[in-house]
């Protein structure tokens, strides 16, 4: 009987935590959109948002309206979506490949995307019809398909997937460097480099809606497969003996995470370290069970990237830092702590 009442109490605490987490995310977004170089009062910002939500006329100039509704808000929302999506993909990769150092880019997706992007920007592939985002998405999918074929041909075990990913990453990075060094001018190189490091500048509502829809769908699929991910704790044979169709689950999860990652990378570049570090942080908070871990990872990732992007665009204002640089600057020390805590006893 006591166990029943304890777990009921625990469930109450859990719901409170979720509510607090979501409130924190909403608060973070609300605060982040009031911060920026333009001289806008907090009141102006919220009356603009209120106006667009149908809460009466804001009485703010069109330029100021545009700064809030067309620049700051979509950018902040895209930061939240990217943080959530990359963190989930990282958590899944780590569980699926049984590798604490796996991240969403382990399958060569970011380097494939960069090759696609430079082919469009530098070489002019697509004749102006294909945008940088589309080129990046196609590049990412091509790289992922290559990894999948290579890994399947080599037996499909987690270490083969990782090795295939390493091979693809090297190949596409080399192709990107080759194209940039042989053909690009200084201006193009700088633009490509900025994008490669991850940047949320220029985010529009179109990006928010596309990425949001893809991430949400992916999250639902992954949570549905949460018990299967739990079953991988002791390896693939153990998962199989627990009734999991290992090949099927692995394929579905690889494809879903690849599509999420490719969509996010094509919108915001390769924002590193979010997918590597935040799943570990989430595990420390809610434990390794995926039914809780995946939504918690998404929430922590969203809050994290909203703040990191706010720092990236304001610290050296008007000069903007690529958000990937800031995530790495925060991420590397965090990563060092993880490595230290996982150290092998001497």
């Amino acid at each position: 009987m006591t166990t029943g009442s304890i777990s009921a109490a625990a469930r109450g605490v859990r719901w409170t935590l979720w509510a607090a987490g979501l409130a924190l995310l909403a608060l973070s977004i609300a605060v982040a959109i009031t911060i920026g170089p333009a001289d806008l009062s907090v009141g102006d910002v919220f009356s603009v948002v209120g106006q667009h939500l149908g809460l009466g006329d804001a009485g703010v100039s069109r330029i100021r309206d545009g700064i809030v509704w067309e620049l700051r808000l979509p950018r902040t929302l895209l930061a939240a979506v990217c943080g959530a999506g990359l963190a989930i993909c990282g958590a899944i990769m780590q569980s699926l490949l049984r590798n604490p150092l796996a991240d969403p880019f382990v399958l060569g997706i970011s380097s494939g995307a960069s090759t696609g992007a430079v082919m469009v920007v530098v070489l002019g592939v697509g004749g102006g019809i294909i945008t940088l985002s589309t080129g990046a998405f196609i590049g990412a999918v091509v790289a992922f398909a290559m990894v999948l074929l290579l890994a399947a041909g080599a037996g499909g075990t987690p270490d083969r997937v990782v090795l295939a990913g390493v091979a693809a990453t090297q190949l596409f990075s080399a192709l990107t460097s080759f194209i940039v060094t042989s053909s690009a001018d200084a201006e193009q190189t700088r633009g490509v480099l900025f994008w490669l490091l991850g940047s949320l500048s220029g985010a529009g509502w179109h990006d928010v809606l596309t990425c949001g829809a893809v991430c949400l769908t992916g999250l639902v699929v992954c949570i549905a497969l949460a018990p299967a991910l739990d079953a991988f704790a002791f390896g693939e044979d153990a998962a199989s003996s627990l009734g999991i169709s290992v090949r099927w689950v692995r394929l579905v999860l690889l494809v879903v995470t690849a599509l999420i990652t490719a969509t996010l990378v094509s919108a915001a570049g390769a924002i590193g370290f979010v997918g590597l570090v935040l799943p570990h942080a989430a595990r420390a908070v809610v434990g390794p069970g995926h039914r809780l871990l995946l939504p918690a990872t998404a929430l922590i990732g969203a809050i994290f990237l909203v703040w990191v992007d706010t720092v990236a665009r304001t610290v050296f204002s008007p000069q903007e830092l690529p958000v990937g640089v800031v995530t790495a600057l925060v991420g590397v020390p965090a990563f060092a702590v993880i490595l230290y805590r996982r150290r092998v006893p001497a």
């Binding site: 739990d230 434990g287 390794p288």
Partner: peptide, 23 residues
Amino acid sequence: VVEQQAQTELDLVVADVVRLGRI
């Protein structure tokens, strides 16, 4: 099935491992 020496990287407690049997 009880495998020989099945190991995990995850920080699981005993009850978590046993609970896997309910999947």
